[in-house]
Nucleic acid binder design. Structure first.
Length: 417
RNA sequence: GUGGCUGUAGUUCAAUGGUAGAGCCAUGGACUGUGGAUCCAUUCGUUGCGGGUUCGAAUCCCGUCAGCCACCCCA
């Protein structure tokens, strides 16, 4: 039997109710916040991600699905959405002339990681990017928007973490102090942290090793290194959040894995995702547009993992409703009538279904029940003789004969449509 | 990439090294034209795959593949 590749899943109808709840919540908030949809390609030239995400990051060095096209150019299945959106924004002369440009996207991402709970090789994200504003109000706006989406989707018990990682003016000082601090206790570090010290010192701060936890307590805090501009930006973001009653926790240990972030970083985290904890994350990236060859343009955005959010939605979301009507017939001329009526119902905008096979009434009613149909419409010998159909309300169990000519009106009435 | 656990019917799970089973689902019947409740019957298997040990392997051993979980990292 053929099977799907590891970490890639089929999503059957029983999951669609929950997903739609999440996606509808997202689309509705995007509408309220005046973000408009952009559809970006599922693959890009590899260079887009190397430049965008950072050549030394794990995503780029070991997690990308990369292959050559027939001309020998390197293509990569997108591992995230921000770099493609920035590329598209810079490349499009119309949209990058706007003072501010608010975009959202939706779709599958690909990372060649080992699958586990809340982590897939093909997973879906929605995300938003806001270009052209360095105002802390807009940091607040994207955070508030994601918060509203989570709440509307039915997710509770999460924490919003907020931090600032400074800018190119003040972060180097902090990194220097951090490196110096950890160098002093090099022999106490776990093996991973020893590597981080050389490769990406900021990540020392979110090591999960038990033995590394005490070391963090006295480590330098980014907040005390922020330059005046970054400090007032950070304070303003916090003030906006407090002013709108969005609960958050300032976490000076929060750093982000991708290279492009500046100033604000944030994460929506929960304890219910096993080894993973974030279901949405983002931040400000004021230098990325320029690095892509655009004119210097500040920007802020976030991305959210749809499958991770699915794991967090409380309570089962009811499946799609069943058909309005299920036709039950006795075959022969009754089947002909059923086929015709089924077609009329569909043309009139109702959902209707039937089984053409010659089965007993019991089996057909059982099927109607399993399909969660609202009405069963019986066409048998009695009905043929009388020129009627018997319509049974499957919720109440009541049934009555209806003249064949009056069916559409009767059902319209019955279902309130 | 590293590690741990698990692979038996469509699904959830049983079966001291000795005849592969049950619940649910599905299908049919009891009820010859009425679903959800009850009862009965029936279908579905080279026990993931390949080797080895043994008189005999679902069971023990080796390999391999897959899934889950964790590390790394990330949504």
């Amino acid at each position: 039997m053929l099977s799907k590749p590891p970490g890639i899943e089929d999503i059957f109808p029983d999951r669609i109710g929950t997903r739609n709840r999440i996606l509808e919540a997202a689309r509705e908030q995007f509408r309220r916040y005046n973000f408009r949809e952009i559809v970006i390609p599922v693959m890009e030239f590899t260079e887009v991600f190397v430049r965008g995400i950072g050549g030394e990051t794990d995503i780029v060095t070991k997690e990308m699905f990369t292959f050559e096209d027939r001309g020998g150019r390197s293509l990569t299945l997108r591992p995230e959405g921000t770099a493609p959106v920035v590329r598209a924004y810079v490349e499009n002369g119309e949209y990058n002339r706007l003072a501010t440009c608010k975009l959202f996207y939706l779709g599958p991402m690909f990372r060649a990681e080992r699958p586990q709970k809340g982590r897939l090789r093909q997973f879906n994200q929605f995300g938003a990017e806001l270009f052209g504003s360095g105002d802390p109000y807009h940091d607040y706006e994207v955070i508030a928007m994601m918060d509203a989406i989570a709440k509307d989707a039915g997710i509770n018990g999460y924490t919003l973490l907020v931090n600032s990682i400074g800018c190119s003016a003040c972060r180097p000082d902090f990194v220097k102090a951090l490196t110096a601090y950890y160098r002093g206790m090099k022999n106490l570090l776990c093996r991973d942290c020893a590597g981080r010290l050389e490769k990406n010192p900021l990540r020392l701060l979110d090591c999960k090793q038990e033995s590394c936890q005490p070391l963090k307590k006295d480590s330098p805090k980014i907040t005390s290194f922020l330059c005046p501009a970054c400090k007032s930006h950070h304070d303003a973001v916090k003030k906006y959040l407090s002013g709108s009653a969005i609960a958050f926790t300032e976490d000076h240990l929060l750093v982000r894995g991708l290279d492009y972030y500046t100033r604000t970083t944030f994460e929506f985290v929960t304890a219910k995702l096993g080894g993973q904890n974030a279901f949405a994350a983002g931040g400000r990236y004021d230098n990325l547009v320029a690095e892509f060859g655009g004119k210097p343009t500040p920007a802020v955005g976030f991305a959210a993992g749809i499958e991770r959010m699915e794991l967090l939605v409380e309570g089962a979301v009811a499946d799609e409703k069943g058909p309005d009507a299920y036709l039950v017939h006795t075959g022969g001329p009754a089947l002909d009538r059923a086929v015709a009526l089924c077609r009329e119902l569909r043309e009139a905008g109702f959902s209707a279904d039937m089984d053409p096979a010659d089965r007993g009434f019991k089996a057909q009613f059982k099927k109607a029940d399993r399909e969660n149909a609202l009405l069963a419409i019986v066409i048998g010998e009695d009905e043929l003789a009388a020129g009627t159909c018997t319509v049974k309300d499957l919720k109440s169990g009541d049934q009555e004969p209806v003249a064949a000519g009056g069916m559409l009106n009767y059902i319209k009435n019955k279902l309130g449509k």
